[in-house]
Design a protein around this nucleic acid. Structure first.
Lengths: 211, 211
DNA sequence: TAGATTGTTAATCGATTAACAATC
DNA sequence: TAGATTGTTAATCGATTAACAATC
């Protein structure tokens, strides 16, 4: 049951969640593992295994309740409750994350954005004003923050993690193109955009060789 | 040898490339699988397997030549030659990709950015001017484009892929939060940002339960 | 009830790790 | 040469798929 979700399964859960959301929006209330498998390009067997080891439940003979399963996976992922994020770095990526409202639908709220550049401090990004990174400690004392988004240059990545962890932040969403070291009590998920592009590049070669 | 690189190995290649780049920048000319394994948190055995099945070569008793291996993996990934990208959608993400210069270091060049919004058409984003998406067909006739970056709203994702594929584009870097359908001769790599955030959310819960 | 589909166990497949012979 | 480290084969491990009994 809970606690035994492997990396492989975990990586699929957000995708299930997305499909179930879409189904719910289309007023589909019930779905079988077979039908979902066809839509997602998986096997029905894998879907049943995944749901089962995540603690989800269906009904024999009928399938799964779409809203019930969606809510369940949302709960497993921990996205039923609001989470506050601060963004460090008001460059291209930091700004894009700040301006995006698509994370709010998963209950992630950006509450502040910081930078060290005097040119950027005080500037408006959407509803937020860029704050001075010097004041991050004071800010963290005032307001609960669950996640720090790292959108700083390569050279500052590690020092920002170290500093924020000292200040009590234990979850990081990292856009810095480096594998940052974090203490055991912290969690980091890295988005290495250029890696995706390089994988695409490989696959382009591959598929063109087929002809 | 070549042609037999599994998904699992392929997903690690960009990371090897990144580490080798860093080593080269630090003037490390030679490295053993053992030393690299320690730095990357992998096993030496896996590194040797990965390099071997990618066609890379070391020297018994010494290890691998850092620049040679870096170049080799770069070639396997197909990033030794320039690739032109066009961005569809001049919103937050489209703009961030356009403004980022970090992709240029992997030889990916943004040559144009398109939108349908009259408010955005004509606006400057870095060195580029936002073009009218209506003119994308004419543009593709004039200039070779290897990759289209999809940064449009959810509702337009599929129609943009369909249209661009009709116009001859076969590689897509997708930021639309949907699994878009592509023909067999095309390739797509999707970046589902909110999925990473949801995975982080799960891991935060997990690690806090440890205490 | 009969039909359908889950939950779960067993079989298969692929990926990772271990071991060691080849060789620089 | 001796020591070190690769290249590669074999063993292990985990994840996926298949099968089927349980049950709605």
């Amino acid at each position: 049951m809970a606690g035994s979700i492997s990396e492989a399964v975990l990586r699929r859960l957000p995708r299930y969640y997305r499909y179930l959301n879409e189904l719910e929006a289309d007023h589909v209330m019930q779905i079988s593992s077979k039908e979902l498998a066809e839509r997602m390009g998986l096997t029905a067997s894998q879907i049943r295994q995944d749901i089962n080891c995540s603690g989800g439940e269906g009904r024999q003979g009928f399938g799964y309740s779409v809203p019930k399963l969606r809510r369940h996976i949302g709960k497993v992922l921990g996205i039923q409750s609001k989470q506050n994020m601060i963004i460090i770095g008001a460059g291209n990526i930091g700004s894009a994350v700040a301006l995006s409202d698509s994370f709010r639908t998963s209950n992630f709220y950006t509450v502040a954005i910081f930078d060290t550049d005097p040119q950027k401090i005080g500037k408006k990004i959407g509803a937020l004003t860029v704050l001075d990174y010097k004041d991050v400690a004071a800010f963290l004392k005032r307001q609960p923050v669950h996640i720090a988004v790292l959108a700083v240059p390569f050279a500052s990545g590690q020092s920002v993690v170290d500093r924020l962890h000292d200040l009590g932040v234990t979850a990081f969403w990292n856009f810095v193109p480096a594998d940052l070291d974090i203490p055991d009590d912290a969690t980091i998920v890295s988005v290495h955009l250029e890696e995706g592009l390089q994988i695409l590049s490989y696959k382009m070669k591959e598929s063109s060789q087929t002809f």
